[in-house]
């Protein structure tokens, strides 16, 4: 319990720090949001007087501290401000985009785990085999290939050459496939290697030898005994990979016009939509921090040794 309280307090400190930094970055970045807004609205460079009027309207004439405190006060009441690009509540913008990103993240995690488990186990069962080398090569390729490049390659292959899948948009299962493959390729490679090494380590344990000695079939030894023990550290990695999913989603959602949080963030940055950028950064940080905490807690719950060690009872 104490651990949870301690971690939650640290989480709040992190979020306050993130909010301060994101606010500071927004206002210190070159360029005047009022001018940008006007140029977009008018389609031509605005005059000085127009810019001054717009600055007043946006509250940019007030001291930075006052702007920040207003924003924090709104935050306290659950209000993230209004988007300068659409005039709608930032919270509404984020909450409308969130389900799309969650869908993409869940699909990616599911697909990655679905690919990684059989591949990782098979590679561990036959170290040095073709499947082991192949999965290693795929993992290296997956983690080193830039996401956008992989996205274009998949578009070209499945969208243009084979004409099997749509290359942009959302709304059906087929729209989900290419973004999922793009985002999941590297992740599946990493998961495969983690499972492979964990299963391989487990296979040397005495309880595995005992199971084999009892005549338990190899398949059951691998999946019921070795894999189960290997999943505990894997859960932490899968939890932490949420960060990878969110950051990767920024590029993937942009190139596939997937209407999730990533595309929303890029659009907000392009439009210099400060309230939306601030809300977005805060929200993404919160998701990342909470998922890390969740992974830690799950790890402690699954493995009592960790709990005891951290509580100083080991």
């Amino acid at each position: 319990m104490l651990y949870l309280v301690r971690r939650s307090a640290a989480l709040i400190v992190v979020l306050v720090g993130v909010s301060t930094i994101s606010f500071a970055l927004g206002v210190l970045a070159p360029g005047d949001p009022a001018e940008l807004w006007l140029e977009r609205a008018l389609g031509r460079p605005p005059s000085d007087s127009q810019i001054q009027d717009q600055r007043l309207l946006m509250g940019l004439d007030r001291p930075l501290v006052a702007q920040y405190l207003t924003w924090l006060n709104g935050l306290r009441m659950g209000e993230l401000g209004r988007s300068w690009g659409t005039g709608r509540s930032v919270f509404t913008e984020l909450s409308e985009a969130l389900p799309h990103t969650v869908l993409l993240a869940v699909a990616t995690l599911t697909a990655s785990i679905g690919v990684a488990i059989p591949l990782g186990v098979a590679a561990a069962a036959r170290p040095g085999s073709l499947i082991d080398h192949g999965s290693r090569a795929a993992a290296v390729l997956g983690t080193s290939l830039p996401t956008f490049l992989l996205g274009y390659i998949l578009m070209l292959l499945f969208g243009v050459q084979l004409r099997l899948l749509p290359v942009f948009g959302s709304g059906s299962a087929s729209h989900l496939v290419l973004p999922t493959m793009t985002l999941g390729f590297g992740l599946a490679g990493m998961f495969t290697r983690v499972i492979r090494s964990n299963v391989l380590a487990s296979l040397g344990e005495e309880y595995i030898l005992a199971a084999r000695a009892r005549g338990v079939p190899t398949r059951l030894v691998l999946y019921r005994h070795a894999l189960r023990a290997s999943l505990i550290p894997f859960i932490t990695i899968a939890g932490l990979s949420l960060g990878h999913l969110l950051s990767g989603a920024v590029i993937v959602e942009w190139i596939f016009s997937w209407p999730g949080l990533g595309k929303l963030g890029v659009d907000a940055i392009h439009n210099r939509d400060y309230p939306l950028i601030q809300g977005w950064v805060l929200f993404m940080s919160a998701v990342f921090a909470v998922s890390s905490l969740g992974a830690d807690l799950a790890y402690r719950w699954l493995d009592p040794r960790v709990r005891l060690a951290k509580d100083g009872r080991a």
Partner: peptide, 10 residues
């Protein structure tokens, strides 16, 4: 479709 290349590929 914001991305030029994606538009062309589509």
């Amino acid at each position: 479709v914001s991305d030029q290349q994606a538009r062309v590929l589509a």
